[in-house]
């Protein structure tokens, strides 16, 4: 299975990211988006899957201080 994931940061302050990955994102996982590291706090299905491709939304919280614009 392949996972296309929309990562949105809790509370804003970071633009988030879109990644395609083979590892299923799960609550508690750590992920690097740009220069910062985050922890996944929620995962939802975003769109119906197509064949072996799942479309997911993951909400994350910062583990390091996000860069400000």
């Amino acid at each position: 299975m392949i996972y296309k994931v929309s990562y949105v940061v809790l509370g804003g302050g970071h633009p988030g990211s879109i990644k395609t990955q083979t590892d299923q994102p799960r609550v508690g996982d750590r992920v690097r988006l740009g220069p910062n590291e985050f922890e996944i706090v929620e995962v939802q299905r975003m769109m119906p899957e197509r064949d072996d491709l799942q479309f997911l939304h993951a909400t994350v919280k910062p583990l390091t201080q996000p860069e400000t614009s």
């Binding site: 633009p15 988030g16 990211s17 990644k19 395609t20 990955q21 614009s69």
Partner: peptide, 16 residues
């Protein structure tokens, strides 16, 4: 941005 500065609006990884 409105003041002309650039800010990151999204990061895109492999396959995007």
């Amino acid at each position: 941005g409105a003041a002309g500065q650039f800010y990151p609006a999204l990061y895109l990884g492999e396959g995007q």
